[in-house]
Nucleic acid binder design. Sequence first.
DNA 1: TATACTAAGTGTCAATTAGGCACTTTTGCT
DNA 2: AGCAAAAGTGCCTAATTGACACTTAGTATA
Lengths: 125, 125
Amino acid sequence: MPYTEEQVVETIPIVRPVLEQVAHKWSILVLTFLCEEPKRFNALKRRLDGITQKALTETLRRLERNGLIDRCVTTMSPIAVVYSITPLGRTLQDPFLALYDWAVEHQADLHDAQARFDERAGSGG
Amino acid sequence: MPYTEEQVVETIPIVRPVLEQVAHKWSILVLTFLCEEPKRFNALKRRLDGITQKALTETLRRLERNGLIDRCVTTMSPIAVVYSITPLGRTLQDPFLALYDWAVEHQADLHDAQARFDERAGSGG
DNA sequence: TATACTAAGTGTCAATTAGGCACTTTTGCT
DNA sequence: AGCAAAAGTGCCTAATTGACACTTAGTATA
């Protein structure tokens, strides 16, 4: 528990805008995925089944703007765009992986809690 | 690196909805803050300077619905609502704290990267 | 040359979500 | 009675997200 309450209070104005950039559902998935190896646009799109091209484009732009990934256009025959993680992005690997692990581990807990809550709320509680 | 690429692919449909519930800028702040000790609505509101009552209400509802915090209405003299973290919520303390630490540590890196990106983009690059 | 396919996007429009701000309700103080 | 604090709710607008079609460039193919 590295922060005292006062430190938490002081760091809120710092942390808030950073989280707004970084704590995005798609960002976490894309970055976790890119940690494995550089990937092309459509490779990412296929893996992240359900993401739209627009959402993926915007997520990649955001990550690139924040210096977390690199965008490299090959000048080769069929033009290809390869996205890879930067050293800065790599520093997010552990935090994001922790979230990823948590999501896998506690999905059922969340689901149960939601069901209980909705039942309480639904039955006029 | 606990996940192979295939495992990542398989877990995406599981992880995505969980992240949608959990990876919210306000959720991370509120939960990190509640890890210290139970707090009342307006105490949270004062600390999270800038949050609106509506946003705080919704964030707390979402966290409660997902079983991460408890909402307790005291029957005492001036009615008060105390929010506290649940055991399930406590399991998010470390992941969220890691993100919190990351945000504090790398705020300047993000800022620089954004400035560089915007300059490149702005000057017709 | 026309047809179709992959890659990497952009544009448009509708729907959802978030933010701002005023209003409500209960209690406590003077 | 009048005012303020606590914990919200409601309404209205602004911003974001998502669906889906369109674009541009290259490759294969008949």
